[in-house]
């Protein structure tokens, strides 16, 4: 049932995202064009070159974001963990900014793979810091605070680098560093789809040990789970997913944090076997919806996607904290 609901939401939002904009494209035209028939040239170009890749990117990256959030929440046994609050997105952003500024300055063309790799390194650096902190502090809230601090440090370094960059780069970087799904090409979509698909599959295959891990490390170990392997996989996969998002859309706040909770409440269970695919769909819905607003609310100018996700995501965080506090578990 829940899956049907999520599926319908994804479909409706996809059509809305493609159809609504400064140039409206009717549902008939979308269906016509997708099934290979001719429509007007302007519509065709907007549809195929701008709207469709952007919608797909929001769909894929939104899902990836929610999945990364879900993995981090499971890993730290912390309901308010996510790639953004733990500073992982910012770490990735910093690495990407460094690479872009230095390579572009030398007029080297930066490929998608290089960006993802840079983002991945940055994500791992942040993750490393967070892991170190998690050894020192046992408290959930303190972990989040240290993550936010790491995020600030990385953002500061990014600002610093951006200030020293050439003018043309700055515009480019500035847009990206605020987070946006705009300017996606089919090549981008293909790479992110590939990376996300592999990561998704790997996560899905881990659903059984993840279920045991929810009881805590000790019980999982007793059930025969290879804790070291599982933990490493969680770190790597969540970093890969975060890196992929940052490389293409920049840091997107709160979606990775909020979507898993919304989906969990919808499903009424935390079984990973159901949660993993539902989480992906939920993240897609969340990002498609937010991107739709980001594009159209103040059209023709665009709001950064992070601003929109924060408006919808941050209350979810507050809600979760209040709920937790009531149950006296945090």
């Amino acid at each position: 049932m829940s899956f049907l609901f999520l599926g319908i939401c994804v479909a409706v939002l996809c059509i809305a995202n493609i159809g609504i904009g400064s140039v409206k494209i009717s549902l008939q035209d979308i269906l016509k064009s997708v099934s290979g028939r001719e429509i007007g040239e302007t519509e065709r170009r907007i549809l195929w070159d701008i709207r469709l890749p952007r919608t797909l990117a929001a769909l894929i990256l939104g899902g990836a974001l929610a999945l990364a959030g879900y993995l981090l929440q499971t890993f730290f046994h912390n309901p308010i963990a996510g790639p953004f609050v733990l500073g992982i997105s910012s770490g990735a952003k910093m690495a990407v900014a460094l690479v872009m500024v230095f390579l572009m300055g030398r007029a080297v063309r930066v490929s998608g793979a290089t960006l993802i790799f840079a983002a991945f390194s940055g994500a791992m650096i942040s993750m490393g810091f967070v892991l170190l902190m998690s050894r020192k502090v046992d408290n959930m809230s303190m972990l989040i605070v240290s993550g936010v601090m790491i995020g600030y440090i990385c953002s500061a370094i990014t600002e610093f680098v951006v200030t020293f960059a050439d003018d043309a780069d700055i515009v480019n970087l500035h847009n990206w560093s605020r987070g946006s799904f705009s300017g996606m090409t089919w090549e981008n979509v293909a790479v992110m789809a590939g990376v996300t698909a592999v990561a998704f599959l790997a996560v899905f295959l881990m659903s059984k040990p993840l279920g045991a891990y929810q009881l805590g490390e000790a019980y999982a170990r007793n059930l025969g789970v290879n804790i070291l392997l599982l933990r490493s996989m969680l770190v790597i996969l969540s970093s890969v997913l975060s890196a992929c998002i940052v490389a293409y859309a920049g840091p997107i706040s709160f979606a990775g944090l909020a979507a898993p909770h919304l989906v969990k409440s919808l499903l009424g269970t935390a079984k990973p076997l159901l949660m993993i695919p539902a989480c992906f769909l939920g993240g897609s819905v969340f990002c498609l919806f937010c991107d739709l607003l980001a594009r159209n609310l103040l059209a023709p100018s665009e709001i950064s996607i992070s601003a929109v996700t924060a408006v919808f995501g941050a209350p979810v965080v507050l809600w979760v904290m209040i709920k937790r506090n009531r149950e006296k578990v945090l």
């Binding site: 046994h77 059984k208 929810q214 009881l215 805590g216 935390a270 076997l273």
Partner: peptide, 27 residues
């Protein structure tokens, strides 16, 4: 140690004991 489960019924918790006997997806 205290368990911090989320959205797990008591039956779900008991069922995790079957982990060593279930297949790859833990059904």
């Amino acid at each position: 140690e205290r368990l911090r489960t989320e959205m797990m019924t008591c039956e779900d918790v008991v069922a995790t004991g079957r982990y060593p006997y279930t297949g790859h997806f833990g059904i």
